[in-house]
Simulated scan of single mutants.
Amino acid sequence: MVGGAAYGGWALTLAPETTPTVRPDDGVSRPISEMPASHSPEAGDGPAAAPAPDWLPEIDYDPAPAGFPADPDTLDTTPLTEGVRPARRLAAYDAPGGRPLAFLMPTIRGVELTVPIARRERGWTAVLLPSANRRLAWLPPGGFRTVALRDQIVVERVPYRLTWYHDGEAKRSWRLSLGQPGQETPLGRTFILGRTPPPEPVYGGVDIYALGAVPDDPEAVPASLRGAHIGIHTWYHDGELGQSTTNGCIRLTSSGQRLLLAEVPPGTPVVVVDELPTPPPTA
């Protein structure tokens, strides 16, 4: 089966026991604020948050609602070093002081959510939107805490290379298989949403990372993979490394996947580019 069942998440059950515990050195850098957003001391002189109707959808594993703004720095490989962990249901807006479009929840399928911070403006915080590609959600102050993000994964499509960075230093690089024509691995910034056990023997018995990204063209993937997320995973053989054979996922060696699973927690930023200007020293 070439590239079959290549999304690590078409039948994803993100159970807490399958998600690695965030390391103590990912420590909290800002306390939870339980005050209403428009009265939070962090709000400063920024625009107040409009009330969010209760009927707005919740962002979960299904495709995120439309209307959120594009990430203007989606191909920027500068590490994102802070993440947001919601402490309660948070209204997500299309701009600072803009329209509420959905609710960001503390968990997705039972897994604690950590979303990387992409930018800040006038007391508001923009995070990478789960279950969408190259989109941001704006959050008013209050109702979340921030944590340090010390890792980053950079995927290069042209040289078929994944590089793991820790504290800005390249640690390891691996050869990859990526998405076949028409089902290319989506470009841009995303993040590790969580992990799940391998549902089939083709994954070599190694857990899968589900990313926040989804296929750019959901209709191009096989029907059995509709509604899936892009994943980072291994395969039962390494004969397709350096080729475009998956349904959009990022496929590396089993030893590489096991190392990432041991060292890299959910919430870690992932950015997919065509090629870095200079190869990493680990290439």
Rank of each mutant, 00 (worst) to 15 (best):
P140Q: 01
V155H: 07
A37D: 03
W164A: 02
P280F: 07
P159A: 04
P79Y: 08
T125S: 05
A15N: 13
D151L: 10
P100A: 07
G4H: 07
P57Q: 06
V147F: 06
P199V: 10
E17I: 13
T185S: 09
Y7C: 14
P16K: 08
D45K: 06
I117W: 01
A126P: 04
F144T: 03
R195V: 12
A102E: 03
T196D: 05
P41Y: 09
R172W: 11
R226M: 05
I232A: 01
H229V: 08
M35G: 05
R135E: 13
L162F: 13
G182V: 00
P31I: 05
P199H: 10
V271M: 10
A15G: 08
I153H: 03
Y236G: 07
G27F: 12
S244K: 12
E112W: 00
P53E: 08
G256P: 09
T185I: 04
G212L: 07
D216C: 05
A223W: 08
V206M: 14
D60A: 15
Y61V: 08
E156V: 11
S29Y: 10
A48C: 04
P96F: 10
G182D: 00
R157F: 09
L104C: 02
W174P: 00
P106N: 00
H237Y: 13
D94V: 01
A49Q: 10
L149S: 01
S131A: 15
W10L: 07
D62F: 13
T185W: 03
F191W: 06
L225Q: 13
P47I: 14
G98Y: 02
V158R: 13
G27S: 14
W124N: 01
Y7I: 11
D151P: 03
A43Q: 08
F144W: 14
P65W: 02
P186W: 02
L178M: 04
L260Q: 09
V206I: 12
E34I: 03
L260T: 04
E275D: 07
T77I: 14
P116E: 10
T282S: 15
A64H: 00
Q180I: 04
S177G: 12
D45S: 13
T245N: 08
D45L: 11
G256N: 13
P265R: 10
T78H: 11
V28Y: 09
D73W: 00
L225P: 01
I59E: 04
L176F: 08
L211K: 12
G212V: 11
Y209F: 15
